[in-house]
């Protein structure tokens, strides 16, 4: 992280609690860069997170107001904060288990109401912090501590879910696509209405050790190979796309 971005951090709490090679740290850097390039004042922002690895991204690392709330409820708390003080820039940063599984109902209703929130979902496809249990976003066939023979349940397509519920900015990027990700976070922050950015982030500790052998970098490479852009996906057949993840901006109204 460039030294000029240290002003956004509580440097006394570093190093981060993330495991070695966790993609959430890359996302943390991307969010701070997006805020810096937009020239936003952190004093006018509120970061809300729930429980889980992803929730550690803003709290306690960002030198701003942060709410670290109960499991699955960051969107509900953020809605309350936004209604109380509409001038506040409210950003929800949390994991897939928090936003999509336990707090899934809050997510779809926030999208239905089109509240002016920016929701950044750090999706690592597993409940990392609590012991690697299967989540609503775990891909089919993947082994977790509760599905040792492979996950048999289909995962949520979070972007389609939010789009169908009425979100007005929806995008998905992996942490490997860090420059498009920074641009997308900027668009999400500038957008008025509910913006939802799903960020695919590798978990080498809980997900990687059960499913892939290799280093954190090899997990990033696998993620890169699995992702296809929205434009390229339009030219591919459904059979080809079966094991691919489509990335890009899906709704920009």
């Amino acid at each position: 992280m460039s030294k000029h971005l240290y002003k956004y951090l509580r440097t006394e709490v570093f190093p981060t609690p993330f495991c070695s090679g966790c993609g959430h740290g890359i996302l943390m850097g991307a969010i701070l860069r997006a805020i810096d390039e937009l020239g936003y004042d952190m004093d006018g922002m509120l970061f809300v997170s729930g429980i889980g690895c992803g929730a550690w991204i803003p709290s306690p690392h960002f030198a701003a107001d942060t709410l670290h709330v109960t499991h699955g409820r960051p969107v509900a708390f953020a809605t309350g904060a936004k209604l109380f003080k509409p001038s506040l820039k409210v950003v929800v940063i949390s994991g897939d288990g928090d936003i999509a599984s336990i707090g899934g109902n809050h997510l779809i209703h926030a999208a239905r109401r089109d509240i002016d929130l920016t929701i950044i979902c750090a999706n690592n496809g597993i409940y990392g912090m609590t012991g690697g249990q299967v989540a609503a976003s775990t891909p089919l066939g993947m082994r977790t501590s509760t599905t040792p023979d492979g996950n048999r349940e289909r995962p949520f397509d979070l972007c389609k879910l939010v789009e169908a519920a009425g979100g007005t900015y929806v995008s998905r990027y992996s942490v490997h696509q860090v420059k498009p990700l920074i641009r997308s976070i900027q668009r999400g922050l500038e957008h008025t209405g509910l913006s939802f950015i799903e960020v695919l982030s590798p978990c080498p500790t809980q997900f990687g050790r059960r499913n892939v052998s290799g280093t954190a970098f090899e997990m990033l490479q696998t993620l890169k190979e699995d992702c296809v852009s929205r434009q390229k996906a339009e030219t591919m057949g459904s059979e080809e796309l079966k094991y691919k993840i489509v990335t890009g901006e899906f709704v920009t109204s």
């Binding site: 992280m1 460039s2 030294k3 971005l5 951090l9 570093f14 190093p15 981060t16 993330f18 090679g21 966790c22 993609g23 959430h24 740290g25 890359i26 943390m28 850097g29 991307a30 860069r33 942490v175 860090v178 420059k179 954190a216 990033l220």
Partner: peptide, 9 residues
């Protein structure tokens, strides 16, 4: 950009 620990400047 890719450092997860924000350790590189």
């Amino acid at each position: 950009l890719m450092c997860p620990d924000l350790a590189i400047t």
